[in-house]
Simulated assay, not measured.
Amino acid sequence: MEKLAIFDVDYTLTKKETQIEFYKYMLKKDKKHILHMPKVILSGILFALNLIPLKSTKEYFISFIEGIREEEMKEHVKDFYENRLSKLLYKDAIETIKRLKMEGYKIYLISASPEFYLNELYNIKEVDKIIGTRYLCENGVHKRSMQGENCKGEEKVKRLMEEIKKEDIEVDFKNSYMFSDSLSDLPLLNIVGNPYLINYKKKHDKIEILEWK
Rank of each mutant, 00 (worst) to 15 (best):
V157I: 13
V157E: 07
K158P: 06
K158Q: 14
K158H: 11
K158V: 10
K158R: 15
R159S: 05
R159G: 12
M161K: 15
E162A: 15
E163R: 13
E163S: 13
I164K: 11
I164F: 00
K165Y: 00
K166E: 10
E167H: 02
E167Q: 05
E167V: 03
E167Y: 10
E167A: 10
D168V: 05
D168A: 07
D168C: 01
D168F: 03
I169N: 03
E170R: 09
V171P: 01
V171S: 02
V171H: 02
D172R: 14
D172L: 02
F173L: 15
K174P: 01
K174N: 12
N175Y: 02
N175H: 12
S176E: 01
S176G: 05
S176H: 08
Y177I: 08
F179E: 07
S180L: 08
S180K: 06
D181P: 01
D181E: 06
D181Y: 04
S182C: 09
L183M: 12
S184I: 14
S184E: 14
D185H: 09
L186P: 00
L186C: 07
L186T: 13
P187K: 02
L189H: 08
N190M: 13
N190E: 15
I191A: 12
I191F: 06
V192R: 09
N194A: 05
P195K: 05
Y196W: 09
Y196V: 09
L197E: 00
I198Q: 05
I198D: 02
I198V: 15
N199L: 09
Y200G: 08
Y200P: 00
Y200S: 13
K202A: 15
K202S: 10
